[in-house]
């Protein structure tokens, strides 16, 4: 029977994080971008929980809950921003939201 070890969990979290980062850098759609950020947050959560289990204390769990709460709040604010972006530009393409350049 295959027993996953600490390293396996961490590698999985790293892969997920890198997918998230890559998505943030290359995707144009704001919704996808947003989901990639969620992916990164969740990979971090996974790391927290992994270490929590490994060290047998509850600090990591508490941090995990915190991240989830913040992620929920962020989702609410982020989606609202995307909604407004769409109302302004009739599109959720972040390439077009470049009004802040010189």
């Amino acid at each position: 029977m295959f027993e996953p070890t600490l390293t396996h969990y961490l590698i999985l979290a790293a892969i997920t994080f890198c997918i998230g980062v890559f998505g943030v850098m290359v995707r144009r759609n704001a919704i996808t971008l947003f989901m990639c950020v969620e992916l990164m947050l969740n990979s971090v959560n996974l790391t927290f929980i992994t270490f929590s289990k490994y060290r047998v204390d509850m600090d990591g769990h508490i941090f995990g809950f915190f991240v989830m709460a913040v992620a929920a709040a962020e989702a609410a604010v982020g989606l609202a921003i995307i909604l407004h972006l769409f109302r302004h530009k009739r599109s959720v393409d972040v390439e077009r939201a470049d009004a802040l350049q010189l």
Binding site: V21, L100, Q101
Partner: peptide, 17 residues
């Protein structure tokens, strides 16, 4: 150096990364 500041959020994210 002004060309670095494009206003494109993704590019900023790339710099950070």
């Amino acid at each position: 150096l002004r060309h670095l500041q494009s206003g494109n959020v993704q590019r900023y994210a790339t710099y950070i990364t």
